[in-house]
Design a protein around this nucleic acid. Structure first.
Lengths: 113, 113
DNA sequence: TTGTTATGTATAAGAATCCTATGTATATTT
DNA sequence: AAATATACATAGGATTCTTATACATAACAA
């Protein structure tokens, strides 16, 4: 896992965005989707994912629905109504964050020349 | 302070980038610079900043130089040679991070239509 | 002159997030 | 038969950050 510390704090936003986009997903599916989208660069560990899902559920952001596929358990998560609203906020925060980090890293050249 | 969790893990990179750009800076100056660049959106707390500076110094990333200005103490930090090399890596990681987060949030539209 | 704000550094206690390691279980591939 | 993939779960520890507190000087406002 080559995850840098930078990803710390972004897991909830990632989960919520993927659920907003895909309707419902189960944990293992989320890890694979993230790996695919980031070309293998970001690997979400189970030790981070499952507690995060449980917490989001406890907070009323996610609903869970258990299915049995191929004799194996799957817990499908989807956004609640409150979760959808909160997702909008989180994505807005993410945009601000990215914009601010880019400002810090690529400062606008001054116009004195 | 309206800092979201997203900034967690990015403080070291921010400090190193600012020092790379400005040569040497002291703690309070860093907080003000960040506040200015982000239009007040990111406020670095002392409780986060000073331990971070001390750790970077202990790791050999930063050198410190104490000055007395206006009867008040200032501790100027600057990158060591190792620190400059490490800064290149950190900035590269930050670029990857931002790119990956943008991929997750703004998925490329599929071309099937 | 007295209080507040700004400047400047520092640390302790706790919260939050994540990683590592481990555990359980079934299905598929080698 | 063994290894890998699928699928969920948690305990222990590391790391990072917030909150609160502390000390000290300078500048400004009431």
């Amino acid at each position: 896992m080559k995850n840098s510390q930078l990803y710390k704090g972004s897991l909830n936003t990632i989960i919520m965005k993927l659920l907003e986009e895909n309707g419902k997903m189960y944990g293992y599916e989320i890890t694979q989707k993230v790996k695919a989208i980031t070309a293998g660069e970001l690997n979400i560990t189970e030790g981070a994912l499952y507690p995060a899902l449980h917490k989001l559920e406890a907070e009323g952001i996610l609903d869970v629905e258990i299915e049995k596929v191929d004799n194996r358990m799957r817990k499908y998560y989807k956004l609640t109504e409150a979760g959808e609203k909160e997702t909008v906020n989180r994505l807005s925060e993410l945009e601000d964050f990215i914009r601010n980090m880019q400002s810090l890293v690529s400062p606008k050249p001054s116009l004195e020349f």
